[in-house]
Simulated assay, not measured.
Amino acid sequence: MIKYLKILLICLIFPFFILSCNSNFINTLKSPLKIKKPSLSLYTNNLIKTINNSANSNLTISIFYSKLGKNKTIPKEYIENISSFFNSLKPEYFLDYSTSNLDTKNPEYRLTVYLNEKSIFVIDILNDKYITIYPWDGSYEPDLIDISNLHTRTNLFNIADYLIKYHN
């Protein structure tokens, strides 16, 4: 009896292991669990709320320049410029990340927003036209923003470029 039970159990479990090695099976299994992102600007809105609510808290922003491997903490007076960048964003600047074909693996600049010394958001500046915003533990794809229509003073690429190259 136990011998037949073992054989039955092996016959039922073995096909599951074979199917689980197939990537299409895994994607099909996960697809009902995928939930659509509520809005294209979800993470950006959360970041703006965090910056506005933590004006008196210990908010720091670190910037990393990938071409030279240079890392710098942004001075407090420039955080106002970053806030003006967020205030100048319009809904039409947000793009659908899933339909874009941008290389998001190697950003030119990476800004990391820390609140009370804990990393909460990452802003990848891909080039002078596109950025992505996402939290470290986000469950949706990043917010993709077209910044090419912004004024030079409020363009985040120009702010980061100035801070890394010319600000001591």
Rank of each mutant, 00 (worst) to 15 (best):
Y43A: 11
I159D: 01
P32S: 11
N24E: 04
D103K: 13
H167M: 07
T152E: 12
L19G: 04
P15G: 00
Y93G: 02
V113S: 09
K90W: 03
S31A: 14
N52K: 12
A55M: 06
F94N: 11
L40N: 11
D128H: 11
S20D: 01
D143Q: 01
I82E: 02
Y134H: 10
L111H: 05
A160M: 03
I133E: 01
N58D: 13
Y162Q: 07
T104H: 05
F17R: 01
S84I: 13
N24A: 07
K70F: 11
L102N: 03
I61Y: 00
F14S: 12
S83D: 09
L19W: 03
Y114I: 11
H167E: 11
M1R: 05
N24D: 12
S84M: 10
I18T: 00
Y43T: 08
T28W: 14
C21K: 07
I51Q: 02
N45R: 14
E80F: 14
L68V: 05
Y134I: 15
N168C: 00
Y43E: 10
I18P: 01
P75A: 12
I26E: 04
S66Y: 07
N22A: 06
S41C: 13
N27F: 07
F121W: 12
N46H: 07
Y134Q: 11
E117F: 12
D124V: 09
H151R: 08
I159C: 01
I13A: 08
S98F: 06
N81D: 15
Y134L: 11
K6V: 13
N24F: 05
F85H: 01
A160Y: 01
N155C: 03
K67Y: 03
N56G: 10
L8P: 02
N168F: 05
S20V: 02
E141G: 04
